[in-house]
Each structure stands twice: as C-alpha cells, then as structure tokens.
C-alpha cells in the first residue's frame, strides 16, 4: 500500500474535512426540520396518555406516533447525503489503486458462483461495492454479497443471513476445459454437505489441504494440473492469512473465490458521527490489501498461474 499515506494527506483528508463541514450543515438542517415535528409528536404522545376516553386515546396515540415518524423521516436527506459521500469516497480510494468502482454489481454477477455451488441457497440478495481492475497484473472483478434465506418463525416469514462476504473472479490466461470446485471441508458431514456438487471427488496428497478443502472436478487430470503441490500450499496460506471460510472454483478462464467473512467489507463512516476519524479508512485499505493479497499469495501473476 505504498504511497497511500501521501495520497491520504493530499486528497482524502482535505476531502473528508470539506465533507465534514457539509455533513454538519445537512445534519443541522435535518435536525431543525425534524425537531419541532418530533417534539410535537412527543408532546401529543404525552397528552394522549391523559385522555380518558379509550377510543380517543387510542386515536391520539396513533396520530402522535405518525407525527414522530414523519419527523424522523426528515433525516432521510442526511442518509441520502451519506450514501453519496460513501460512493464518492470509495471511488476516490479505489481510483488511487487504479480500480474502477460502482456502488452496485451487475445483476448476473453471482451466476458463475451459483453454477459452481460456491454459495448457499438464498431467497434474496444484495450486491454492493463492485470493484474491477488488475491486482499484480491479474485482472479481477469482485463485489460484496449479502444473501438471506426465507425461513418460517412462529408461523411468520423471516429472513436469516446465509452469506455475507466477498465474491471475486480472477482471470487466468488460459481456458480450463473442465470445472474444478474447492469446497470447505465439513468433516463428517461431507457426504451430506456436498450433495449435488458436480464432478468427481479428487483426492489430493497434501494432508493439510485435504483437511481444509474437498475438491470436485469434471477432469481429474486438469484438477491436479491446477492444484499443484505449490498451489495447494498457497491456498492453505490464503485461508490462514484471511482466517475466513473460503470456497473456490476454476471455470472457463476464471478463478472464482467466495469468502464468507460474515462482515461488511469496504466499510464507510456513520453519518451521525464525525467523519474525520481515520479508523474506517484503515479498515477500507486493509480490505483492498486483501484483494491484492489474494493475487500475491496465490501467485496468480506467475506465468503459468498454477
């Protein structure tokens, strides 16, 4: 991350400083608009509790709650401003590293990951922070995915989180004829957990790798061509470096990676707080280092990429 400190001082810090002044204005304006309405609502609420007639009291309480909500809606302007700020800041930081940034990923971005069974079943998805560029000479494209599955709780529909992390595609210089999938080892549940994964099980020589991954492929020889002893070691190292569950696949010309870190990547500061705290920028840059680290750890820039 050489040169980022200088870039931060010359570009990011002044930008955040200016935006902090803007945020204060927007927040003050929103507060000015919201305060009387919320205040009126709260007063109405207090007054309502004293009404003797039950029907009237119920109506008054409902009306007061509605007024409070209308008051709070005045803060949407601040939220919208916060989103725009986050997009501008992301574009600036990613731009510094030569990456292209878009707030949302293409709708079909998850298709190859689903084809390769790298993601759990889900009912709804959110794709954010689409980043594309070259890391160590290797073209890549990634997005942050938030996947939820519909479940029944107390006879009501609810959603539970099944994946929250990065989905990334790194381009290889050659095309694979088969499809090789690396799934996280699930111990005794392997037989059940990997049901439906296409291809035959590939048994590899590295015991440490075998502990972490289960490999399936439509081509036993190609799977071993890709997963050389050196590349297996690099995958083990990557898993140890990130400390997060990783699944991968080789398909077409791409290495697909799904990292279910159960956390937000490229996080942005909250609009309620002072923007000048640099902690979120540090975390942001650490996440960018992860993108580069993957390419470097896996040595994807090597001539053969294996």
């Amino acid at each position: 991350m050489q040169g980022f400190d200088a870039f931060y001082e010359s570009e990011i810090a002044p930008f955040i400083e200016a935006k902090e002044a803007e945020r204060k204005l927007v927040a003050k304006c929103a507060f000015r608009r919201a305060a009387p309405i919320v205040g009126a609502g709260l007063a109405g609420f207090a007054f309502s509790t004293g009404i003797a007639d039950e029907d009237m009291r119920g109506f008054a309480l409902f009306a007061s709650a509605a007024v409070i909500i209308i008051g709070l809606l005045q803060f949407t302007a601040l939220m919208t401003w916060g989103r725009q700020f986050a997009e501008e800041l992301s574009a600036k930081i990613f731009g510094h590293f030569g990456y292209r940034y878009a707030p949302a990923a293409p709708a079909d971005f998850l298709e190859p990951f689903e084809r390769c069974h790298l993601l759990p079943g889900y009912s709804r998805k959110t794709l954010e922070d689409h980043v594309a560029g070259e890391a160590g000479g290797v073209p890549f494209e990634l997005a942050e995915a938030f996947l939820e599955r519909r479940v029944k709780r107390d006879k009501q529909d609810d959603y539970e989180l099944v994946f929250r992390g990065l989905v990334a595609r790194y381009r290889f210089p050659k095309r694979f004829s088969g499809r090789t999938i690396l799934r996280g080892d699930q111990g005794l549940l392997n037989a059940l957990g990997h049901a439906g994964v296409p291809g035959e099980r590939v048994r590899l020589e590295d015991p440490q790798f075998e502990k972490l991954f289960e490999v399936f492929s439509s081509d036993q020889v190609e799977a071993r061509y890709l997963l050389t002893p050196a590349f297996m070691e690099r995958l083990v190292a990557l898993k140890q470096v990130t400390g997060e569950p990783i699944q991968a696949a080789f398909e077409g010309e791409d290495l697909l990676l799904a990292i279910d870190g159960r956390r937000g990547y490229f996080s942005q500061p909250a609009v309620w707080k002072d923007l000048r705290g640099s902690d979120h920028i540090r975390r942001f840059v650490e996440d960018i280092a992860l993108i580069r680290g993957i390419a470097e750890t896996l040595k994807l820039d090597a001539e053969t990429r294996v």
Binding site: Q220, A223, R224, Y225
Partner: peptide, 10 residues
Amino acid sequence: EGNIAAARRF
C-alpha cells in the same frame, strides 16, 4: 510437462 505430472499424480 504440467499435464504429465498431473496425470502421474492421478
């Protein structure tokens, strides 16, 4: 060469 090594491992 890489393919031969892979086939040998298989």
